[in-house]
Computed example of a mutant assay.
Amino acid sequence: MSLKRDQKAETREVTSIRNDYVRSVEMEGERKKAHRVRLFRRLTVFGLLVLMATIWVGSTIYAQTQTISEKEELRIQALQQLEEVEKQQSQLEEQILLLNDEEYLAKLARKDYFLSDEGEIIFTTPNTEKKDEEKPSEEE
């Protein structure tokens, strides 16, 4: 040990006094240094926990936002389908009312099934749309 002290003494110009006060000051310095290290470690761990919690909360909010937007799109589609169904329902209700009318049924039967009233003669005319479709195929 004395050899180490001599080597230290040679490297320094002033030798340190090894008494109780100096040792207590050195120990207090070491305690403060150890306290700073522990404090830094605690703050680092706490910071990492806060960062992880922030990332988790952010990802949860993002996922919920995506889910809400998907549900909103589904809601809009459902409302559009509801409108279409309501239109169809109103048309069907009108058709029910019309089908309960005997005059309308008679007109419908005459039109679709070529039924006639007494003394009526039905003439069918050729469909001009079919003739127009046939002309281009004959020219080719």
Rank of each mutant, 00 (worst) to 15 (best):
Ile122Met: 00
Ile96Ala: 02
Ala63Asp: 10
Glu103Tyr: 03
Tyr62Ala: 04
Tyr113Asp: 12
Gln91Lys: 13
Thr60Glu: 14
Phe46Lys: 12
Ser24Ile: 02
Glu13Leu: 15
Glu72Phe: 00
Gln64Val: 14
Ala53His: 09
Ala34Gln: 06
Glu139Trp: 08
Val85Ala: 11
Arg31Phe: 02
Thr67Leu: 04
Gly29Asp: 15
Glu28Asn: 12
Ile61Gly: 05
Arg31Trp: 04
Arg41Phe: 08
Gly58His: 00
Phe46Trp: 14
Ser16His: 08
Arg23Trp: 05
Leu51Glu: 09
Glu10Tyr: 05
Glu118Tyr: 14
Lys131Ser: 10
Leu48Ile: 12
Asp117Gln: 06
Lys131Leu: 05
Gly119Cys: 12
Glu94Cys: 12
Glu28Gln: 04
Leu79Cys: 06
Glu86Leu: 01
Lys32Asp: 13
Lys4Val: 01
Phe40Gln: 01
Gln77Tyr: 01
Thr125Ala: 14
Glu118Pro: 13
Ser24Glu: 07
Gln88Met: 04
Trp56Arg: 15
Thr124Arg: 05
Ser59Leu: 11
Arg38His: 08
Glu129Asn: 13
Ala78Gly: 05
Gln95Pro: 02
Arg5Phe: 15
Arg75Asp: 12
Ser116Ile: 03
Phe114Leu: 10
Arg5Gln: 15
Val14Met: 09
Glu103Cys: 03
Glu139Phe: 02
Thr15Gln: 07
Glu26Phe: 04
Gly47Lys: 10
Thr65Tyr: 07
Trp56Asn: 10
Lys8Ala: 12
Val25Leu: 03
Glu86Ile: 02
Glu93Ala: 06
Gly58Met: 00
Val22Thr: 07
Ser90His: 09
Ser90Val: 06
Asp117Met: 01
Arg41Ser: 12
Glu73Ser: 10
Lys87Gln: 14
Met1Ser: 01
Ile55Tyr: 06
Asp112Thr: 04
Val50Gln: 11
